[in-house]
Amino acid sequence: MKILNAILGATALAAASLVSVAAIAQTYPERTITMIVPFAAGGPTDTVARLVAESMSNDLGQQVIVENVGGAGGTLGAARVASADADGYTILLHHIGMATSATLYRKLPYDTLNAFEYVGLVTDVPMTIVTRKDLEPTDLKGLIEYAKANKDTVTVANAGIGAASHLCGMLFMSAIETPLVTVPYKGTGPAMTDLLGGQVDIMCDQTTNTTKQIQGGTIKAYAVTSPERLDVLKDVPTAAEGGLADFQVGIWHGVYAPKGTPADAMARLTKSLQVALKDENVAARFAELGTEPSPENDATSDALKAKLESEIARWKPVIEAAGQYAD
């Protein structure tokens, strides 16, 4: 049956190439597309991927199935895609870690900037600076003063090296020019538990993980890292309002394909991503997570390429200054 399919496919291809190049574009995709998520099933990135994949499936007329290839901060999954066949049937959904692992890992089996084609940006999840609920300061300025005055005892939790909370925590400490006591955890769950229990003081994490806790009053929010206030957290000022002018961090997600994937397939994938991001269901789910789909002009190959390049340049000095690598 497989051989029959291949023969049919080959015949179709041969026939199509006789007619016109545009006709090939219409034949893609002709089988299931695998979207690799380089993190475990059930996490925030996996959720984003599954929502987008489902909507893209509708548009492409072929199933886009999510395969979780977790491990080593997302680099195993990225490596898998980098070495996959460049036929448009294997794609990658990765977040900001794509840019930071270029510096965090000194021995990557792929060259981050030259191993991929770019489909487009998916979403940019804002971060929040949160603390245990009984911390005294009332605003971000107060928090910074408090942290500076007690820098030997104030603890900053993160979910492990390379995690969003680790990156944001590093950036926060470099922004206030004060090193605090870093307490790493294995994953967001245990870190959040200890924040709720008041065992640690500060954490900076994605809205995906913090919004409901902030709304429930179990933790205290001092700032969001987006340029504007968020609809779901109207009372929380932006970092700029609180006095940290350049403190903007977001966990952006992008879709990639292996280098050399045919241009027509790339164009089709980008178009499909754009359709998916306009899907009301996707927008509604994203909103519940405290984020929104990227606008159409960001869901493009060029925008993602530019984002990746600028983010690699931005994080390199921050990571090198911290002197912590993952290998």
């Binding site: 995906t208 919004t211 519940e288």
Partner: peptide
């Protein structure tokens, strides 16, 4: 349980203290 949370989020329920 992490998988369950993923399932809840996909269903549009973000679990938190007020669920």
């Amino acid at each position: 349980m992490a998988l369950m949370i993923g399932a809840m989020i996909i269903q549009g329920i973000v679990p938190g203290p007020n669920v």
